[in-house]
Simulated scan of single mutants.
Amino acid sequence: MLDAFTALARGTRLAYGPGLRRYVFVPIAINLLVYAAMLWYVLAHFGGWLEGWMAMVPAWLAWLEWLIWPLFVVSLVLVVFFTFTLVTHLIAAPFYGFLAEKVEVAATGRVPLDDRGLAKTAVDALGRELVKLAYILPRMALLFAISWIPVVNLLAPLLWALFSAWMMAITYLDYPMDNNKVSFADMRRRLAARWWPTLTYGGGVTLITWIPLANLFLLPGAVAGGVLLWDRHYRHLRDLSPR
């Protein structure tokens, strides 16, 4: 049985192996620039955001300030994390789609059903990334709103953690599924049908993304690991779309 963390370890070795590593360095370089710009912006505005949010806390909850303040910090960090993740994935998607295609050939010997070449893979992967954003952003906005509601926001860190695992699974397991002509709706149903490998893999990728700078070098391994999990856990599932 291939578990999520074994897939991530094997995937990282594959991504940086001969013949594949050249597909990972361009998105890494671009994302380093995005990383630096977003870090500067957050540090420059963090104090003002914190003061504004604390001013919204009603007087009768002032005694909970010792708890509300760290919850705000955690929620803000999670929001920044999601924003950075969405931006970097949008940039890297064309490269990661092609990487997933090459990993599938190298690891399984199978050619994806939609062998499109670099240019078409890049365009299609970018379009698929926009579909993911249309799915993720409304749910992210709802969680963001919950994070600003006093008392209710006590649940926000847990909800963000669960959502992050699901979002990461969708993001990285979608690359091989898109290459194999699995629709976005059917992809989500397959992930739900195998919820344990889905959430453990998504949780593992989430942990990777929290390693500053190193995450940019480890995420290509998540793409390759997603290909291995696709082949082991999801490929054999029938089309789960409603008839």
Rank of each mutant, 00 (worst) to 15 (best):
202 G>P: 07
74 V>Y: 03
184 F>W: 04
82 F>C: 14
52 G>M: 00
179 N>K: 06
76 L>K: 09
33 L>Y: 11
203 G>N: 04
44 A>W: 09
180 N>H: 01
40 W>C: 10
220 P>G: 07
42 V>G: 04
166 W>P: 00
41 Y>L: 15
12 T>M: 11
185 A>Y: 08
234 Y>H: 01
94 P>W: 12
123 V>W: 09
147 S>Y: 14
237 L>F: 01
67 L>W: 10
116 R>Y: 06
56 M>Q: 14
153 N>T: 10
185 A>S: 11
47 G>V: 00
220 P>V: 10
26 V>N: 09
143 L>K: 08
166 W>F: 03
190 R>K: 13
175 Y>D: 09
111 V>F: 02
118 L>N: 00
188 R>D: 00
107 A>G: 01
101 E>I: 01
219 L>F: 05
175 Y>C: 08
123 V>R: 12
128 R>V: 09
204 G>F: 05
202 G>C: 02
14 L>E: 07
36 A>W: 03
90 L>M: 13
232 R>Q: 09
154 L>C: 03
120 K>A: 15
131 V>H: 10
191 L>A: 06
82 F>Y: 11
40 W>R: 15
142 L>A: 15
191 L>M: 12
205 V>F: 11
10 R>W: 01
211 I>W: 12
235 R>Q: 06
86 L>E: 15
31 N>I: 13
